[in-house]
């Protein structure tokens, strides 16, 4: 089974990379984009023994830095 962990910066945390990407998008001539936030997608291949609680702990202890980031876990069939 595949699990996707989406890691994103918390609201209010400045995102210099997102800002640079935004700048580059505008540089390409695209209009109408008001903000860009960059995050990270981590895919795990797990077997049936891995509980939601274990996934939650993986995210908390390593995949996300809880000082600056939030995470969302999605089980993909």
């Amino acid at each position: 089974m595949k699990v996707r962990v989406y890691v994103s910066l918390k609201n209010g945390v400045l995102d210099p990379q997102g800002r640079a990407i935004h700048h580059a998008i505008e540089g390409l001539g695209f209009a109408g984009v008001s903000d860009v936030r960059a995050g990270r997608l981590i895919e795990l291949e797990v077997d049936g023994s891995v509980t939601d609680e274990a996934l939650d702990q993986m995210a908390k202890q390593l995949l996300a830095n809880m000082v600056i980031e939030n995470y969302r876990i999605e089980r993909v069939a």
Partner: peptide
């Protein structure tokens, strides 16, 4: 040290990239 939780806060990408 910050990642290990021994110091508060986090070190992020420099504001000027």
């Amino acid at each position: 040290l910050a990642e290990a939780g021994l110091l508060p806060g986090a070190l992020m990408r420099n504001a000027g990239i």
